[in-house]
Amino acid sequence: MSAYEELLARAEADPGVVGLILSGSQARGTAGPHSDHDVFVVVPEHDGRWVTSLTPALDTAVLTVDELADVSDRWARYAYRGAVVLLDRLGGRISSLVEAQATLAPAEVDAFVREQLDGYINFVYRAAKSRRDGHADLARLDEIEAGPWLLWTLFALHGRVRPYNKYLRWELERYPLPAPWTAERLIAEPPSAWFTELERLARARGFGDVVDGWDDLSLLRSVSP
Score class of each variant (00 low, 15 high):
193 A>D: 06
187 I>Q: 14
191 P>S: 04
191 P>H: 08
191 P>K: 03
170 W>V: 04
174 R>L: 13
175 Y>F: 14
174 R>I: 11
160 R>E: 15
194 W>Q: 05
189 E>H: 08
168 L>N: 09
199 E>I: 04
160 R>F: 01
167 Y>Q: 12
178 P>C: 03
189 E>D: 14
198 L>D: 05
195 F>I: 13
188 A>H: 00
168 L>D: 09
190 P>R: 15
180 P>F: 04
186 L>D: 01
173 E>A: 12
181 W>S: 04
164 Y>G: 13
169 R>C: 01
171 E>T: 15
161 V>I: 14
171 E>D: 15
191 P>Y: 03
189 E>R: 03
176 P>G: 02
174 R>D: 13
194 W>K: 09
192 S>D: 03
196 T>I: 00
177 L>N: 09
181 W>N: 09
167 Y>V: 02
190 P>C: 01
159 G>L: 11
177 L>I: 10
193 A>C: 03
178 P>I: 05
169 R>H: 12
175 Y>R: 14
189 E>W: 07
161 V>S: 05
167 Y>N: 15
179 A>P: 15
186 L>G: 01
165 N>G: 10
163 P>E: 09
182 T>H: 14
195 F>R: 14
161 V>E: 08
157 L>I: 07
170 W>H: 06
162 R>D: 04
177 L>Y: 06
171 E>Q: 15
157 L>A: 00
172 L>I: 13
170 W>A: 05
193 A>G: 09
174 R>C: 09
169 R>F: 05
171 E>G: 06
190 P>F: 00
164 Y>H: 13
167 Y>C: 06
190 P>D: 12
159 G>Y: 02
199 E>C: 02
171 E>H: 11
165 N>Q: 13
197 E>D: 14
198 L>C: 09
183 A>M: 08
161 V>K: 05
180 P>Y: 07
173 E>F: 00
165 N>H: 06
161 V>N: 04
197 E>M: 03
166 K>M: 02
195 F>N: 10
188 A>Y: 08
182 T>F: 12
180 P>H: 02
